[in-house]
């Protein structure tokens, strides 16, 4: 556990990842401090999802250094114990929600706190109900995921991750699988979370949202951090030619 607020919660040094012959991440240096909201943008296939999936070890890397919440994550996935500890402190929301379809909404949320944190059912239920209210899902606790809309499912997935009381939240294109009318409700819940001071790393194509909530925006191109900075400077005055062409493509339609 690392309680010093000035110490980075994520520290990547010259991180490299290959998928076979494909060099997906190239010498990534990245530090994220507690309370920071970082938005990662880039074209599909640029490596932005892979980057955040390295942070909780869903992807292994081959070269470099990675420290999350004070624990070293070794290359080639060779740090099982640290890995599980890190995962209990790092929550993740996925593009496809990945709710557990055989469990009710409330069971989805209480599973990990009870099995991993060892909470009593009563404590876990209390937390679940509080979180469901917070993400605006009421009277649905005993429904199954398939009975909810996509937007509701994603908000349940957010509540499920928050139930572990994570110190860092990762979002992997959380609104990309949603119908347009449901994107707002998920972004609202995330905005709320950012306001409360959660450390967040968000991969998204929602540029308006990025501009509004991000402390820092990172642009990734072909596995490299091409440019990063405060949203105003990166969106309004991109320095790099690749950033300019990417932004002109996503912002003009």
């Amino acid at each position: 556990m690392n309680d010093d607020a000035t110490q980075p919660i994520v520290r990547m040094q010259a991180l490299n990842k290959h998928f076979g012959d494909l060099h997906v991440l190239k010498d990534i240096d990245l530090e994220i401090v507690p309370g920071e909201v970082v938005v990662v943008i880039g074209a599909s296939g640029s490596g932005k999802s892979t980057l955040i999936r390295c942070i909780n070890g869903l992807e292994e890397y081959q070269l470099g250094k990675l420290e999350v919440d004070g624990s070293q994550l070794l290359p080639f996935g060779k740090s099982n114990r640290a890995l599980q500890r890190i995962r209990t402190e790092v929550g993740m929301v996925f593009q496809q929600f990945n709710l557990f379809p055989h469990l009710s909404v409330v069971e989805n949320i209480t599973l990990a706190p009870m099995k991993v944190r060892g909470w009593s059912r009563a404590d876990a239920l209390e937390t679940a109900n509080r979180l469901l209210e917070r993400v605006g899902i009421t009277d649905q606790a005993h429904k199954y995921p398939a009975q909810l809309s996509g937007g509701q499912q994603q908000r349940v997935a957010l509540a499920r991750a928050l139930a572990m009381e994570p110190r860092l939240m990762l979002f992997d294109e959380p609104t990309s699988a949603l119908d347009p009318e449901m994107i707002g409700e998920v972004l609202d819940a995330m905005r709320e979370l950012a306001k409360e001071g959660m450390t967040m790393v968000i991969v998204t194509h929602e540029m308006g949202f990025a501009r509004e909530v991000a402390d820092r925006v990172i642009f990734i191109h072909q596995g490299e951090i091409t440019e990063q900075g405060e949203p105003e400077s990166l969106f309004d005055n991109p320095q790099h030619e690749r950033t300019q062409s990417f932004l002109s493509r996503v912002l003009t339609h």
């Binding site: 209990t88 996925f94 496809q96 709710l99 557990f100 379809p101």
Partner: peptide, 30 residues
Amino acid sequence: IERGQREASLSLGLSRSQAFRYVIWPQAFR
């Protein structure tokens, strides 16, 4: 069972055997 089920389980801190027991197996058995 979709890979995302295992990933979601692991991301919550469940061990591989817990992920199998509580998430993968009940769905697979059905």
